[in-house]
């Protein structure tokens, strides 16, 4: 899985090349972005197979993008596409037609049930201290390098709330790792 965040300039250049007909650029896009997209998709849909489906659909959407406008803020756009494809993947699982990610989450599992869901995320103890939006904000903001306003827009929450979710997530992680280190001392 990725260790470096996607470079905004590199992503923009790859997209420009794709839309100019450069076929090699598509493979490059996959190499640069796929694992980042998968990780974020997992944070939304939880199940591996749904995350895989969302990522495939996202690549298709990117290729088929026919807007006549040059993509600005390529990373923010990329993760917005992934989020939309996650929602589509969830809808295709025959849940009710709602657009809100959290409504789908409620359908899939409650907080009590999360641990029993077979998802790669459960292998990470720290993930379990965070709620869904906290996990997504940390991934998008701190790991992928997006701004709070960009995260808020992708997640469909206000910027004020995004800031508050982010701050709380950081506190939780600090507490978790502090206590974990204390166990080994």
């Amino acid at each position: 899985m990725p260790s470096d965040m996607i470079d905004e300039e590199i992503l923009s250049q790859i997209l420009e090349r794709i839309y100019s007909g450069d076929e090699d650029a598509f493979r490059e896009l996959y190499n640069v972005c796929a694992s980042h997209m998968y990780r974020f998709a997992l944070s939304v849909v939880k199940y591996s197979y749904l995350a895989e489906e969302a990522v495939q659909e996202a690549f298709l959407s990117i290729i088929l993008y026919s807007g006549n406008k040059r993509v600005r803020k390529a990373k923010s756009w990329l993760f917005t596409v992934v989020k939309n494809c996650c929602i589509k993947a969830l809808k295709d699982e025959h849940f009710s037609r709602k657009d809100d990610i959290d409504l789908y989450k409620d359908k899939l599992f409650s907080a009590d049930q999360t641990e029993s869901i077979e998802t790669p995320l459960n292998e990470i103890e720290a993930v379990r201290v965070l709620d869904d939006n906290e996990l997504r904000i940390i991934i998008l903001c701190k790991i992928e390098g997006l701004t709070i306003p960009e995260c808020a827009k992708i997640l469909g929450i206000s910027r004020v709330r995004a800031r508050s979710v982010y701050d709380y997530a950081i506190k939780k992680l600090k507490k978790f790792y502090r206590e974990k280190e204390g166990q080994y001392e």
Binding site: M1, I124, E125, I138, Y177
Partner: peptide
């Protein structure tokens, strides 16, 4: 430091 630890753990998830 907390974020570094968290990111390391996330990176351990294997992507197909």
């Amino acid at each position: 430091h907390a974020l570094e630890l968290f990111e390391n753990e996330l990176n351990a998830i294997k992507m197909p």
